[in-house]
């Protein structure tokens, strides 16, 4: 029986060039440091960035509606459109989680998950995607931040029911 040859593996230790660049007084042993005030200021960009969030989400939701309308009327483009829906849902999730809009994060995640399987000709799928677009529109217009209370529960229920009802009709 042939003996299996060991893989040729090389372990390469490189000079730490960045450390050399940033080490205070060339002290390579000193731990890296970012001024805590600078970190606080950077976090402030997120904490004070409600306007950025609103602007970006408004634009993403508009694009989402446009893409979805296109998908329903031009089935030929459905493959590209579903990829774009995935990208937009991911972007909405990304922005919402960063700015702590939990409900929008939840719907963005849910749509991203569903967009893997969207068949634009399928009526059930149309209903599910439309339900996501509608509730995201409400979550945006009502500016629901955090858990969102009773309205958030209702909106989640709407999408949950749509998925439960129409998924079984595939």
């Amino acid at each position: 029986m042939n003996q299996r040859q060991p893989e040729q593996v090389e372990v390469i230790h490189r000079i730490n060039r960045i450390k050399k660049k940033v080490a205070p007084d060339g002290n390579m042993g000193a731990p890296g440091f970012i001024n805590p005030d600078h970190i606080k200021n950077a976090q402030g960009i997120i904490d004070d960035g409600e306007d950025t969030y609103k602007k970006e989400i408004a634009s993403a939701l508009k694009q989402l509606s446009t893409e979805w309308a296109k998908a329903k009327t031009s089935p030929d483009t459905s493959k590209e459109v579903t990829k774009e829906i995935y990208r937009l849902a991911n972007y909405i999730k990304d922005m919402a989680s960063t700015y702590e809009y939990e409900l929008m994060d939840y719907f963005g995640h849910s749509l991203r998950k569903f967009s893997d399987q969207i068949d634009v000709q399928n009526k059930a799928h149309q209903t599910i995607v439309q339900a996501h677009i509608d509730v995201m529109g409400v979550a945006y217009s009502q500016n629901i931040k955090g858990q969102g209370g009773e309205m958030a529960k209702e909106l989640k229920l709407i999408v949950g029911k749509a998925i439960a009802k129409y998924s079984s009709e595939d």
Binding site: E7, E10, R14, N16, K19, P31, G32, F33, I34
Partner: peptide, 16 residues
């Protein structure tokens, strides 16, 4: 994460 990259560089592995 940035400080980790700077302070704790890992060796590179070259395998097939």
């Amino acid at each position: 994460r940035l400080l980790h990259i700077i302070d704790k560089p890992r060796p590179y592995i070259k395998a097939p």
